[in-house]
C-alpha cells in the first residue's frame, strides 16, 4: 500500500486526536515504528491493521471513523492539494461525480504506484446516482461518503447521501442531488497555486 494512504490516516488521527493518540494506534497495530513516510511503499495488510487499531484505541464505530477520515482528506487546510486535485475533476458537483470513475487513473497519473480502489457512478435519472465502491478495504465506502459530503460543501451543492451497506466486496452509496447551486461554494482557481 502506498505510504501516502497510510500517512494520510496518521495525519488524520494526529490532527484530530493528537500525537499521543496516534502513538497509541501505532503501538496497538504493532507496526514496529511510529511514523509512516508518505513516499515509501508498505505491505498491504498494514492498512486494515491501522484502521482496526484506530477504532479500538479511539473507541469509535468504524463507519463514523472512516467517514470523518474522508471529510478530513478534503477539508483540512493541510490537505488543500487533495481538494484542489479533486476540483480539477469538474466545474460543478454533478460534473465532479462523473469524474469519479477516473479517480484511480488520475491518481496513477500523479503517482504511478498509488492504487486507489475503483469507483463507478451509475446515473439513475432525476438527480439520483449510485456510487459503487470496490471495497478492498472494508469501509472504503464510508471514506468516499465523507469525501462526497465535503466536496458537496465545497461546490455549494445540496445533496442527500446514504451508505447502503456492502455486499460481495462492494459498497454502495446513494446520492440525491437536490440543488447544484444551493450555497456559495469555495473558490477554485486553476492557477491559484502559482505564486
Amino acid at each position: 500500500m502506498h505510504g501516502l494512504i497510510n500517512r494520510s490516516i496518521q495525519n488524520f488521527v494526529t490532527d484530530s486526536y493528537g500525537r499521543q493518540s496516534w502513538v497509541d494506534v501505532a503501538l496497538n497495530a504493532r507496526l514496529g515504528f511510529i511514523d509512516f513516510e508518505g513516499m515509501l511503499m508498505y505491505k498491504t495488510p498494514l492498512t486494515p491493521r491501522i484502521v482496526d487499531a484506530m477504532c479500538a484505541v479511539l473507541m469509535r464505530p468504524r463507519g463514523d471513523m472512516l467517514e470523518d477520515l474522508g471529510t478530513y482528506l478534503v477539508s483540512h487546510p493541510r490537505l488543500e492539494s487533495v481538494r484542489r486535485l479533486l476540483r480539477f475533476g469538474g466545474v460543478d458537483f454533478e460534473d465532479f461525480l462523473h469524474s469519479l470513475d477516473d479517480l484511480p487513473d488520475r491518481a496513477r497519473l500523479a503517482l504511478p504506484d498509488l492504487v486507489l480502489p475503483s469507483v463507478e457512478l451509475h446515473a439513475e435519472g432525476e438527480g439520483h446516482f449510485n456510487l459503487i465502491c470496490e471495497a478492498s478495504l472494508v469501509g472504503y465506502g464510508h471514506v468516499m461518503l465523507g469525501v462526497l459530503r465535503a466536496m458537496a460543501d465545497d461546490y455549494g451543492a445540496l445533496v442527500v447521501l446514504e451508505h447502503c451497506g456492502h455486499a460481495q466486496g462492494v459498497e454502495t452509496i446513494t446520492i440525491k442531488l437536490v440543488e447544484t447551486d444551493f450555497a456559495e461554494g469555495r473558490q477554485f482557481q486553476l492557477g491559484a497555486t502559482i505564486a
Partner: peptide, 20 residues
C-alpha cells in the same frame, strides 16, 4: 485542464519526495 492537473499533482508529489 489535464495538463494543469498533472502539473499540480506532480509538483505536490515532487515536494513530498524532496522532503523525504
Amino acid at each position: 485542464i489535464e495538463m494543469l492537473y498533472l502539473m499540480e499533482a506532480k509538483s505536490a508529489a515532487m515536494e513530498a519526495s524532496r522532503k523525504l
